[in-house]
């Protein structure tokens, strides 16, 4: 897929909750094709301590409105500057980058999409694309508390949504891997994105139950296009770039101790 450098315009910037901003970006020209699970490198302006672009997963693509969405979790000065963007501001982005999630081959494939925290973001676009293919995914979304679970109304448009929170304030109490849906339903594949301990627990569950499983990694990266070799993950073929060969990896390729 051809990669582009684009100066996009902020159509809206909505604070979903403390520390989380949903940026909707648009352009006068049609946006390029993007796959669910791919990401963009966002340029940060006006930060004295941020030098590199910030890799952020594609949250959603609204073709009718010609918008691409990014859910920004403000964790440092770079992401805080991105979170301060206002409607009408310009943002330089490089996209689409990386490979994306595996799409179902048959409409009756049972796909479970497991997300934790801001890692739920790319699963929304995955849900939309699957829905357009005639599939109905199952979402299993987890957070520490109810407020961590965002965009639930949109997730419900595309599939069945199951929730866990560590404090029990929403959905079942506990971790995603403890949710009753896992024992109630057989899944053909699991795609997951979230904190590494969560993804490792999901991968462990999938391996034990012989379910095909892929994880979306977020190793620290610089270039985003496979040039600098900084973001490597150790795999059964040696070090490979997460930005180019990932960010989505089948767990069979990884050397995780699970």
């Amino acid at each position: 897929m051809k990669k582009h450098i684009l100066d996009l315009t902020v159509a809206s910037a909505e604070h979903l909750r403390e520390g989380y901003v949903l940026l909707k970006l648009t352009d006068v020209n049609p946006l390029p094709e993007m796959l669910p699970g791919q990401f963009a490198e966002l340029k940060v302006e006006g930060s004295e301590v941020t030098f590199l672009r910030r890799p952020i997963s594609i949250n959603f693509v609204d073709k009718e409105k010609n918008e691409v969405w990014f859910l920004i979790h403000e964790v440092g000065d770079g992401t805080r500057k991105l979170g301060q963007l206002k409607q009408g501001d310009k943002l330089n982005v490089v996209l689409p980058l990386g490979n994306g999630f595996t799409l179902p081959v048959h409409v009756d494939e049972k796909v479970l999409l497991v997300g934790g925290g801001v890692g739920t973001a790319p699963l929304l676009y995955m849900g939309k694309v699957m829905s357009e293919m005639g599939c109905r995914p199952t979402f299993l979304l987890g957070g520490r508390t109810a407020g961590d679970l965002m965009q639930l109304e949109q997730f419900r448009q595309y599939g069945d949504v199951y929730l866990t929170t560590e404090d029990g304030s929403e959905g079942e109490k506990g971790y995603v891997t403890q949710h009753s849906i896992l024992t109630a339903t057989h899944f053909d594949r699991i795609s997951t994105c979230g904190p590494k301990p969560m993804m490792m627990a999901v991968a462990r569950y999938a391996k034990a139950n012989e379910i095909d499983c892929e994880v979306s990694l977020e190793n620290m990266m610089a270039c985003g296009v496979g040039a600098c070799l900084c973001c490597v993950e150790n795999t059964n073929e040696g070090h490979v770039c997460v930005c180019k060969e990932g960010p989505v990896f089948n767990i069979k390729r990884l050397l995780w101790q699970i």
């Binding site: 004295e48 301590v49 941020t50 030098f51 590199l52 190793n219 620290m220 990266m221 610089a222 600098c228 070799l229 900084c230 973001c231 490597v232 993950e233 150790n234 040696g238 070090h239």
Partner: peptide
Amino acid sequence: EGNPYPRMAETAQGM
């Protein structure tokens, strides 16, 4: 194979 991850650290005006 190069060195293990992590291989990069962002710094003030550099890396």
